[in-house]
């Protein structure tokens, strides 16, 4: 009798817990961090952190490139994998895309015959190059069964090499007005949000999404259930690559130039945003909404440090600690679930 009522109470507790969206926790963390800055702001700087629309816009603008990458990385991590190549892919696609986005007025165009192209051409090239890099990642992982960590580590190194080789280290500048327009105003944010909405829907309501979670939850069971695990993984990594490519396009357009060193360490920020957003590195768990909030948390943190005039060195130290803390919380949560 007593065990029965205890079980009922537990079931009721679980039921009520489920009504709250899982993102609520991280959203509260975001609010918490913002409030801390608000208070510290009044104490040390004598102004409000939050009541400054311009600052809030800049925060979102700065994180939108990371956010676009993180949407792809989230899907990879849900399958139980990892993608270390996205930062380098950003650099590589920025170079390729910019080389077809140069204006004829620019005297040192890389391909003088291919200047003033319609904006769709460089954009398609950028996304295509990213897609190809992701496709190669996926093929390596599916066919040779090497760990995703190694496959994407190789791509990380090689893609960076390609971006340097492409122009022998020279930046690509003199981009067309239409191309640069992609990176101006609110457009990066719009692109980020559109991408997030598309893949939020894909993960939750399509077969693609269901299979992605199933593979992450138990790859053997997924295979026995008829899922072609190999081809699905190729799809997921290719999508992640294409999104890194899109991020490369946006990066080049924002900077109005492309350099081989663009996107360095972006993969780590994207992974951090994903993990802070509640996606489990063990696979099978994670949502795009969480990743969006995680991305904003990263942005708020950086912006807040600058606002409080904290030294950049300290920023990195604290950022590292917060990333580790997020994973510790994840591990703790999983342990609690098991007992």
């Amino acid at each position: 009798m007593s065990t029965n009522s205890a079980a009922q109470a537990q079931a009721a507790a679980q039921k009520s817990a489920r009504r709250l969206p899982p993102e609520l926790n991280i959203f509260l963390v975001l609010i918490g961090i913002a409030l801390v800055y608000e208070i510290l702001g009044w104490i040390f700087v004598g102004q409000s952190f939050l009541m400054n629309p311009q600052r809030l816009t800049i925060i979102i603008l700065q994180v939108s490139v990371i956010g676009i990458i993180a949407v792809g990385v989230t899907q990879v991590i849900i399958t139980g994998g990892i993608d270390l190549s996205s930062g380098s892919v950003v650099g590589m696609t920025a170079m390729f895309t910019a080389s077809l986005a140069q204006a004829s007025t620019w005297p040192r165009a890389l391909y003088p015959a291919l200047t003033d192209m319609p904006v769709i051409v460089p954009v398609a090239l950028g996304i295509g190059v990213g897609l190809l890099a992701g496709f190669i990642n996926g093929q390596l992982i599916a066919k040779t069964k090497i760990p995703p960590f190694i496959a994407t580590l190789g791509m990380m190194v090689s893609a960076r090499g390609i971006s340097k080789w492409y122009t022998k280290g020279q930046p690509v500048s003199g981009l067309t007005e239409q191309f640069n327009f992609i990176g101006t105003g609110i457009w990066p944010v719009v692109i980020f949000l559109v991408v997030a909405v598309i893949f939020h829907i894909a993960l939750r309501y399509t077969r693609y999404g269901k299979f992605t979670y199933a593979i992450g939850a138990n790859v053997q069971a997924a295979r026995v259930s008829g899922i072609n695990v190999e081809s699905h993984l190729v799809k997921v990594y290719a999508i992640a690559g294409a999104l890194a490519g899109l991020a490369g396009v946006v990066t080049a357009a924002r900077a109005q130039t492309a350099q081989a060193g663009m996107g360095v360490m972006y993969e780590l920020d994207a992974i951090a945003a994903t993990v802070i957003g509640g996606t489990s590195l063990a696979g099978g768990v994670g949502r795009i909404t969480g990743t969006v909030i995680g991305t904003v948390i990263l942005g708020v943190m950086t912006s807040g440090f600058t606002f409080l005039r904290v030294d950049a060195f300290y920023q990195e130290i604290v950022k590292g600690i917060i990333i580790v803390a997020a994973v510790v919380v994840d591990v703790y949560r999983q342990k609690k679930r098991k007992t």
């Binding site: 269901k210 979670y213 199933a214 939850a217 138990n218 069971a221 026995v224 099978g284």
Partner: peptide, 13 residues
């Protein structure tokens, strides 16, 4: 456990 259940997913999934 090894080849059947997607343990961390729900009954429906």
């Amino acid at each position: 456990k090894d080849t059947g259940c997607l343990l961390i997913l729900d009954i429906l999934e």
